[in-house]
Design a protein around this nucleic acid. Sequence first.
DNA 1: AAGGATGCTTAACAAAAGATAAGAAATCAA
DNA 2: TTGATTTCTTATCTTTTGTTAAGCATCCTT
Lengths: 194, 194
Amino acid sequence: MFSAFHQIVEQFVKLEAQEKRILEQAFTFKRVPKKYKLTSKGEVANELFFINKGLVRLYYTKGEDEITGFIFKENLFASSYDSFLRRVPSLQTLETLEACELLVITYQKLEELYVALPKINVLTRKVAEQRFINGQQILSSFLLESPEERYRRFEVQHRDLLQRVPQNMIASFLGITPVSLSRIRKRMQQPWSP
Amino acid sequence: MFSAFHQIVEQFVKLEAQEKRILEQAFTFKRVPKKYKLTSKGEVANELFFINKGLVRLYYTKGEDEITGFIFKENLFASSYDSFLRRVPSLQTLETLEACELLVITYQKLEELYVALPKINVLTRKVAEQRFINGQQILSSFLLESPEERYRRFEVQHRDLLQRVPQNMIASFLGITPVSLSRIRKRMQQPWSP
DNA sequence: AAGGATGCTTAACAAAAGATAAGAAATCAA
DNA sequence: TTGATTTCTTATCTTTTGTTAAGCATCCTT
């Protein structure tokens, strides 16, 4: 149940068996169905999730529309991180796209963990750095690439998600409308000159 | 020389006078002219900068063009953070827009600091979190807002930079061309119906 | 002060994306 | 299975942005 978790954590910080136990005990295991809201817009995110199995989508709500901000897959830490860290109402919603198996830690438990196991500062620092770097890459793709190029990149980097996530969610993640993505895909199928 | 620095650091972590001295000694003071490259594309960023005075621009190079990724002002930690953290050649260039007064720490000194003063993990974790949250806000503005709306937001959030930064750099930071930004500004001056 | 570079605006045209709507296809649930 | 959603595609029209080029203004350097 914690094997993948420890494997990921190990990349960031080395822990003794004893320390691993303390870490484990701060988390709880949770199974949730598809379309389950882990964090809702307007509420303070009180939990941080490690995804053992399944997919989680982070999205913004703009009027009627849902705009996908990120898709978390297995072995990632998912959260409305801004809300979780700053203790402010979330602008984002976190919702499962598939039935999920999760390891969950509350904000309070994490604070206790910092005291009991200061090494965890290193872990969370590196997780924060990872997420920063990741966000950086996405941001730079908005600055440097066209929607079509962003979609091509998505195809190679997340081929698996193409099968598991509806296209309209991918479209909004790329900053375009579903209609526009459909056109781009068509354009790409026909690589001859006009 | 370190007064603003300590004030900022204090927001993140409380330090004893003794610890502050250790922290100070890890940094060096540096004055650099306008247009000075702090980090160049293709090189591993070896330094992290705290800006006492001046402006620093981070940009990507795409063919002939420079695309602004961020503008750092006083009291911020500036760096090609991705390169600095991962020890890989930078995709970004860090260049002053004005003559600057900086506090500089090298990667190695920082590593030593982690050992000498483990609390610094808390500091850098919080700085990483800050930058993540900041990047998150910028990214969400690309997903949720039009170029015009992004410019309006920039106007209110960084009114000071409008005076200090050329418009073409602001344009690329907003993900549009200088021509397009010029049109948007014109549109905004004339808020009557066509 | 002169000359050159840099930055800003404007115009004209091309290319792409948004909005809306309609229909086909796939998925889901009773 | 059937009926109802949801999802994807396609078409049309509008709006916006990109591209290129030209003209000014401003700033900087010599």
